[in-house]
Nucleic acid binder design. Sequence first.
DNA 1: TGTTGAAATGTTATAATATATCATTTTCTG
DNA 2: CAGAAAATGATATATTATAACATTTCAACA
Lengths: 158, 158
Amino acid sequence: MSDLFPKKGHNHDRCVNTALAQAEKVCADANARFTDMRRKVFTLIWQSHKAVTAYELLDALTAEGMRVQPPTVYRALEFLSDLGLVHRIESLNAYFGCDQPDCDHLGQYFICTQCGRVAEAVNEDMSKAVHKAAGKVGFTIQATSVEIKGQCHDCATH
Amino acid sequence: MSDLFPKKGHNHDRCVNTALAQAEKVCADANARFTDMRRKVFTLIWQSHKAVTAYELLDALTAEGMRVQPPTVYRALEFLSDLGLVHRIESLNAYFGCDQPDCDHLGQYFICTQCGRVAEAVNEDMSKAVHKAAGKVGFTIQATSVEIKGQCHDCATH
DNA sequence: TGTTGAAATGTTATAATATATCATTTTCTG
DNA sequence: CAGAAAATGATATATTATAACATTTCAACA
Ligand SMILES: [Zn+2]
Ligand SMILES: [Zn+2]
Ligand SMILES: [Zn+2]
Ligand SMILES: [Zn+2]
């Protein structure tokens, strides 16, 4: 069985550093500014593999002594979303960090209802099935969201 | 090309009547009460093929002279959702009527961003792909939501 | 048929999520 | 440095959703 969610006790600093490096590159390529605020929000999102709400981010920023209002957080989230650096999980009203922001993927999100972690996977078969179904009925796809809730392997077996 | 969204000028009363008859049956089978309020909310949702928000329903009820508060609407929506008579579209915070409440389907919702209509389709290939992917990574599925936004055929060609 | 207990709805208050608008600051460009 | 554009600050408010307790309705049954 292949891995999806990272193992307990994995080197998460490595996840964060990789994500930051990727984000730097994506921003540079897009000629977009990875400002302190955006980097801060991005880093907070990457503190775990869970999805985080805008107000949790707001609270985290406040806890660090910053005087931040909701629009600031939502603006950072919009910026990061637009570049594909974070994804919004519609069914949770929450955001999580994308670990493959360069690949133009049809995201499929596995959401563990027990530990709260989210993992993204590319699924060509699913993507094909969706496009085929759309083609059949003459529907022009602009965006797709596939959110799968359940138990991750760790939670199901422990 | 097969149909997905109903044709303009179709006999919508028929849609409503069919939906009501199905709802009656589903409630009876579940030994659940299809009260006036629940029927009213259900009928309002079925006034179109669009998804409707809780507060739009509230406004509609108020417009008819009823003194209704948010919890009343949300309770009706929860009841109807639980029985599979309506589905919540996560990305719209809105609800729409299911036209095949008896089939235990993995729903796939096509959402036209232009006309606002929603259509549900069963997609075995997609369902298989999702379950296969989940199996590979040891993920136990509890619920899945597939929301596809774009343009319906009518809107794309007119 | 009247009693009663569970289910449904009413009522009030508030929590949680998100955006509009205008002011100020920062950054880039010439 | 001046001026324009982008980003952030600040204030207010809109939108979506639920908690908690009171009252009403209704079906089961003594
Ligand atoms: Zn990690
Ligand atoms: Zn888990
Ligand atoms: Zn119809
Ligand atoms: Zn349309």
